[in-house]
Design a protein around this nucleic acid. Sequence first.
DNA 1: AATTATTGTATGTTAGACTAACTATCTACA
DNA 2: TGTAGATAGTTAGTCTAACATACAATAATT
Lengths: 157, 157
Amino acid sequence: MTRPKEILVPTTPHVEGDEDIGEINNIVGFHIRLAHGATYRHFTETFSDLELTQKQVSVLWLVDDHPDIAQTGLAKRMRMDRATTMAIINRLQKRGFLVRGKSKTDGRKQTLNLTDEGRQALASAKVAIQEHEKWLQSRFKKKEVEMLIEMLSRIHE
Amino acid sequence: MTRPKEILVPTTPHVEGDEDIGEINNIVGFHIRLAHGATYRHFTETFSDLELTQKQVSVLWLVDDHPDIAQTGLAKRMRMDRATTMAIINRLQKRGFLVRGKSKTDGRKQTLNLTDEGRQALASAKVAIQEHEKWLQSRFKKKEVEMLIEMLSRIHE
DNA sequence: AATTATTGTATGTTAGACTAACTATCTACA
DNA sequence: TGTAGATAGTTAGTCTAACATACAATAATT
C-alpha cells in the first residue's frame, strides 16, 4: 500500500495548462529571494554563537573601514533609510560595539567608531564570514564567483 | 563655490570620490543582500497599488499552480516554516484571496485554493511582475539571465 | 495498542523597513 | 544678512517576516 511518496523538488516545472508569463521559476526576482533566504539562514546558523545578523556585521565592517563615518554615510552605503540605520546602531551601541561622537566639521552629524569590543566582535565575525562564504562559494568556480558578483552589482549598483 | 552636489538616489551608483568599501565587496553574501534589497524595494514600489508583498504574490501564484496544496507543501516550496506560512495565509485569507478547505485524504491537512478575487489579484500581480522583471532583466542579456537564474538556483537548491 | 511523526494553530519575540513628525544645524540665495 | 529649505539625527508607531515553543488532532509506524 505504498503511496507514490510525493517527492517535491521545488525547482520542478509545474505542468498544467500554462498561461501568461510562464512559470514562477523563470522569474529572476523569485530566485533572488530564495537565494537570499538560503544565504540568510546559513548565515544565522553560522553566527548563532556571535549573535550578530548580516546587517550588524556589515555595519561593524563598514564603520571599521570608515572611522568617523556618520549614520547617513552608512545608510547610503547600505541602502537603508535613516530610521532603520538608527535601530541597528542603537542595538550595536547597547552591546558596546560602537560609540557615537560629535562631528567637528558638522554639528548635525555624529561620528561612529568601533570600540575594542566591537573590533574584537568584528574579528570573530570575519572568521565566521569566511566559513559562511566558503559554504556559499563552494558551489562556484572562481570565475563564476566573479561573474555572480558582477551581475548582482548590476542590480544594486 | 558649488559643491559636486552629491545627489543620492537610492538605486543610483554611488560615485563619491572616495575609497572603495574594502574587502567587503568581495563577499558574495553582501552582494546578495544588497541585490535582494534593491529588488525588494523596486518590487514594493511597483506593487504599492496592489498592496501585495513578494511573499504574498509567490503564495498566490503557487496556490494557483497547485490547487488543493496544503500549507506544508507551500512551506516546502518557499522554504518557510509552518508558523510563517500560517501568518501569510491568514493575511491573504482575511483579504478574501484564498480559502482553506478540508483535505479528503488527510484529516490533518487543509487544502488551499484561490477565490475569484484571489485569481483576479494574481492576474494583476502578474502584470506588475512583468514590469518589475523588465526592470530587473534590463541589465542583462538573455543568456545572462539564464546564467544568473542557474547560479542563484545553486544557492537555494 | 502504543509510540512517534506530521499538520495546523496560537502566542510571543526579534530584526528590519518604512512613515511621519520633530529638533538642531547647515546651506543657498533673494 | 536673513530666512527658507535641506540635511542629520531622533522618536514613535506600523507592518512583514522569521523563528521558537507549545498544544491538539490525525496519521503512520512499530
